[in-house]
């Protein structure tokens, strides 16, 4: 019997061997490569320099656009209100402080990746998650205002300031929104 199908038998063995080789290669790829693809924010980043694509590419298109409502009031796509106020004279300017690092500033200073448009889009995205509720949002009330910590589950910036630099400028994956109703008091990554 063995002599009747010598060719097909060795072919079968070769095919089985090849199948196992492919399975082993796929398993090795899954174990080694996939964690790097799925969790880019989990490991240390080579540089704290802002990478525009990480924040901008993931934010929903159209988010963060502002509509002038008169009297200096600016309404974002998601419904946040940026009004005159703060040390900088306008909440928008105040929030935009977090578009750049202040390496000599004492303590921590969250810095958004990308440009001003990306920053506003990420804040809008966080606000939509606040409105939707869910596990990504932790909220607490402080008298007339709410402080929302929103986990965006990806890198959106880094922790700067003097203390952030001392820590190696770790990546930031969360946004803290300080709001009075829909009025932005401040927002920054951490």
């Amino acid at each position: 019997m063995t002599g009747r199908f010598p060719t097909s038998g060795s072919r079968g063995l070769r095919a089985t061997g090849l199948t196992w080789l492919v399975i082993l290669l796929l398993a090795a790829w899954y174990l080694v490569v996939r964690p790097m693809v799925v969790e880019p924010a989990a490991g240390p980043l080579p540089s704290p320099a802002p990478s525009a694509e990480s924040a901008a590419d993931s934010a929903e298109p159209g988010l963060g656009q502002l509509t002038d409502q008169g009297n200096g009031l600016l309404r974002s796509t998601a419904g946040l209100l940026y009004a005159p106020g703060s040390q900088e004279g306008h909440r928008l300017k105040h929030v935009l402080r977090h578009d750049n690092d202040q390496p000599s500033r004492p303590g921590l200073h969250g810095v958004f990746d990308g440009d001003a448009d990306d920053l506003l889009a990420v804040i809008d995205e966080a606000y939509l998650l606040v409105k939707a509720g869910g596990r990504q949002v932790k909220s607490r009330r402080e008298r007339q205002r709410m402080v929302h910590d929103v986990d965006l589950r990806r890198r959106i910036g880094f922790v700067g300031g003097r203390e952030g630099r001392r820590q190696g400028n770790p990546p930031a994956t969360r946004v803290r929104l300080v709001l009075e109703d829909d009025r932005v008091i401040t927002a920054f990554p951490f």
């Binding site: 009004a83 402080e142 008298r143 300080v178 009025r183």
Partner: peptide
Amino acid sequence: EECEAIWLHPTCPGSPLFPQQP
């Protein structure tokens, strides 16, 4: 200077006050 929380003493006792908007 970030969120405008206010205390009346440098030891920051109790809950902060917040300025009235706008």
